[in-house]
Amino acid sequence: MTAASPTPAQPETLELGYSFCPNDTFIFHALHAGLVPSPLPVREVLEDVQTLNDWATSSRLPITKISYRAYFSVMDRYVALRAGGALGRGVGPLIVTRGEVGDLNGKVVASPGALTTAELLLRMVYPDAQVRRMRYDEVMPATARGEVDAGLIIHESRFTYPQYGLSRHLDLGAWWEGDTGLPLPLGAILVRRDLPAQVQLDLNAAVRASLDYAYAHPQASAAYIREHALEMEDAVMQAHIDLYVNAMSRDVGDEGERAVRELQRRAVAVGAAPASDLPLFVGEALVSGT
């Protein structure tokens, strides 16, 4: 009598962390819903970006959205996908105030998190600003109440700050573009480096396919995006997607790579991240033959 073959183990489910923001839910809906092929099933874990940044320091999730600033501090454990990130022009964080403030060195600025790209840029422009950290959705109310001299805002806040009686002090994205001539890297999608190289590449393809599906079938993700957009108005929600999802979300491209390397160089120069010679993106080691 022939022995029965062992029952194959159920495939591992990978936790995929991303934010509630419309650009992320737009990109990842099809992957989360199983509408596109994936090398392994994924399960969504939705959190604010600063929480995801913090979790990455302990390698909590195998795939995760993260600020590029935070990525530079966890490169020993993670590598960035070429797809799914947020880079571009006109996408940068803003510094807002209740009125004319002038030089912010020595002033108190509310920040959405120590590991955000936004705070790294603030440090480059105003190295002596006094930072007070809080959750990103608390920054504008605190600034409007006069609890801080200025607020560093990200995400959909760049569309809604006038509702709080606030004025734009500085567009940090415009400052970056003017200083470097490059698009601004904001957020990346990372996979753990200990995953097999082919799985990393297949996950990159799956994220790209998820984005392609979202563009081809915009109504498929509409309810999912709305569910997580809280009280965001429809026009703001769509403006958010239009601004933060672009060609570099499908592939970072040569210009995007140059921008990431320049941001990394500057982060190291100001002591915000350790130097690293590890590949920044999946597939680089395969291409170089190492």
Rank of each mutant, 00 (worst) to 15 (best):
A269C: 06
L286P: 09
E15C: 14
D254E: 15
Y244R: 05
I66W: 03
A110S: 10
R60W: 01
A83W: 06
G17A: 02
A239H: 13
A9E: 14
L190D: 04
A205V: 00
G88I: 05
P41E: 05
P218N: 10
H155L: 14
H169T: 04
S157K: 04
G271K: 01
L120R: 01
A70I: 08
V108Y: 00
D149Y: 04
T2H: 02
E231G: 15
I95E: 11
P141S: 10
H32F: 13
D194G: 00
G253K: 08
Q219N: 12
E262K: 09
V49S: 13
G283L: 03
G90W: 01
G113C: 01
A209Q: 10
I63E: 02
V101N: 06
R69C: 10
Y244V: 06
G271V: 03
L263H: 00
R193D: 02
A114R: 14
T180Q: 11
D277G: 09
G17V: 06
E119S: 13
T290F: 08
A272L: 11
A4T: 00
T57K: 03
V109G: 03
R133V: 12
D54R: 14
S67T: 05
N53E: 07
A247E: 15
A114E: 13
Q198W: 03
R226N: 09
S249K: 09
N246Q: 04
P37R: 01
E257K: 03
L152R: 05
N204A: 00
A223H: 13
L203N: 00
M124T: 05
A56L: 02
T13N: 14
